[in-house]
Amino acid sequence: NQASVVANQLIPINTALALVMMRSEVVTPVGIPAEDIPRLVSMQVNRAVPLGTTLMPDMVKGYA
């Protein structure tokens, strides 16, 4: 199964993503693939992302 990017902490709106904020986990539904974690670093989220939430492409500015 494909691992997705999951929030490792609460990520406030407009926060630039850092490695420590993300982990990979096999979840349903599938979100952003875990292999894209390096690409996500320094991109901003466009909403608050609670701990344990799967990151979806529409949550990250400039990802989709």
Rank of each mutant, 00 (worst) to 15 (best):
N1C: 07
N1D: 15
N1L: 15
N1I: 14
Q2K: 07
Q2E: 15
Q2C: 13
Q2V: 14
A3K: 10
A3H: 10
S4M: 02
S4Y: 03
S4H: 02
V5T: 08
V5L: 03
V5K: 00
V5F: 02
V5A: 09
V5M: 02
V6M: 04
V6H: 02
V6C: 04
V6S: 00
V6K: 03
V6R: 02
V6A: 02
V6W: 02
A7R: 02
A7K: 01
A7G: 01
A7H: 01
N8Y: 04
N8Q: 09
N8W: 04
Q9D: 08
L10Q: 12
L10C: 15
L10V: 11
I11L: 08
I11K: 00
P12M: 11
P12E: 11
P12Q: 12
I13Q: 13
I13E: 12
I13H: 11
I13K: 13
I13Y: 13
I13W: 13
N14F: 14
N14G: 11
N14H: 14
N14D: 11
T15M: 09
T15S: 07
T15D: 03
A16W: 14
A16H: 13
A16N: 13
A16S: 09
A16C: 15
L17K: 00
L17W: 03
L17Q: 01
L17H: 00
L17A: 00
A18D: 06
A18S: 13
A18L: 14
L19E: 05
L19N: 05
L19I: 10
L19G: 05
V20M: 15
V20E: 10
M21W: 04
M21G: 03
M21Q: 05
M22K: 00
M22L: 13
M22S: 02
R23Y: 05
R23A: 05
R23G: 06
R23N: 06
S24D: 09
S24M: 10
S24T: 12
S24Q: 13
E25P: 02
E25T: 08
E25C: 07
E25I: 06
E25D: 12
V26E: 15
V26N: 10
V27M: 06
V27P: 00
V27G: 03
V27A: 06
T28W: 06
P29Y: 03
P29V: 06
P29L: 04
P29M: 04
P29A: 04
P29N: 04
V30L: 15
V30I: 15
V30Q: 10
V30D: 11
V30Y: 15
G31Y: 02
G31T: 01
G31K: 02
G31H: 02
G31L: 02
I32P: 01
I32K: 01
I32H: 02
P33G: 07
A34C: 07
A34E: 12
A34H: 07
E35I: 08
D36S: 14
I37Y: 03
I37K: 05
I37L: 12
I37G: 05
I37Q: 04
P38Y: 14
P38M: 10
P38C: 06
P38K: 14
R39G: 06
R39S: 09
R39Q: 07
L40R: 00
L40G: 00
L40H: 01
L40P: 01
L40T: 02
V41L: 15
V41I: 08
V41S: 03
V41Y: 05
S42G: 14
S42M: 10
S42R: 09
M43Q: 07
M43N: 04
M43P: 00
M43R: 11
Q44S: 13
Q44D: 04
Q44M: 15
Q44F: 14
Q44I: 14
V45F: 01
V45T: 13
N46T: 14
N46E: 07
R47V: 10
R47E: 15
R47G: 04
R47M: 14
R47D: 05
R47F: 06
R47Y: 12
A48H: 13
A48R: 13
A48K: 11
A48C: 07
V49K: 01
V49L: 06
V49W: 03
V49F: 03
V49P: 02
V49Q: 02
V49H: 01
V49G: 02
P50D: 07
P50K: 10
L51G: 11
L51V: 15
L51F: 15
L51N: 10
L51W: 15
L51Q: 15
G52Q: 03
T53W: 14
T53G: 08
T53Y: 14
T54A: 06
T54D: 02
T54L: 04
T54S: 04
T54W: 02
L55M: 10
L55I: 15
L55C: 03
M56C: 11
M56D: 04
P57F: 08
P57H: 11
P57T: 06
P57S: 08
P57C: 08
D58H: 10
D58K: 10
D58V: 08
D58P: 07
D58E: 13
M59V: 06
M59I: 05
M59T: 05
M59A: 07
M59L: 05
V60R: 01
V60M: 04
V60Q: 00
V60Y: 01
K61V: 13
K61L: 11
K61A: 11
K61N: 15
K61W: 13
G62L: 11
G62N: 11
G62R: 09
G62W: 09
G62P: 04
G62Q: 08
Y63M: 05
Y63H: 04
Y63S: 03
A64R: 10
A64M: 11
A64H: 12
A64W: 06
